[in-house]
């Protein structure tokens, strides 16, 4: 079936099977491999993208369900001139990533969180990221990064 989506401001159209998971569609049909796959049970959040501004796990959606949607992936966060998004910058400055594999999903979840709650407490950050797993950082610096991006004390 034909699936048309807008990803990072660009319209894309590609043919896929109805069973094609959105994350595979984004990665393989559209070639945007920044969105990662870390599990098969909707547990890890590595595949988090924004659909119409809200974080979702793209492994738990069929591409068919996203037809016509406005999708933002990690590739769409930094400015056109290469300037990192404040959340990306905060992750860099607070050492919120190590191997980087959970990072795109973590950053997308974090930006979605701040759009809903611009000044979260530490507890709210942890709860807001409860659907994202990281094996490298123990979350300490991820939480610090999100608080820093929110403009709070880090």
């Amino acid at each position: 079936m034909e699936v048309q989506v807008t990803v990072n401001g660009q319209s894309h159209s590609a043919d896929c099977e109805p069973r094609t998971l959105l994350v595979h569609f984004i990665r393989e049909q559209l070639g945007l491999t920044g969105t990662n796959i870390g599990c098969d049970t909707s547990s890890c959040g590595a595949c988090t993208v924004h659909i119409d501004g809200e974080s979702v796990k793209s492994c738990t959606m069929f591409a068919a369900q996203a037809r016509g949607a406005d999708i933002t992936t990690i590739e769409g966060l930094a400015a056109d001139d290469g300037t990192l998004h404040p959340m990306q910058q905060a992750f860099m400055e607070c050492h919120g990533l190590q191997c980087g594999y959970c990072t795109p999903g973590m950053v997308m979840a974090a930006t979605s969180l701040l759009s809903e709650n611009p000044s979260p407490t530490e507890t709210e950050v942890r709860e807001g990221l409860e659907g994202n797993l990281c094996r490298c950082t123990g979350y300490h610096n991820i939480v610090k990064s999100v608080l820093a991006a929110a403009g709070g004390e880090s």
């Binding site: 491999t33 920044g34 990690i74 590739e75 990533l97 795109p104």
Partner: peptide
């Protein structure tokens, strides 16, 4: 290492 990993440029 971070800029490429933070922007989806890192290739696994």
């Amino acid at each position: 290492e971070d800029p490429k990993l933070l922007t989806g440029e890192g290739k696994y």
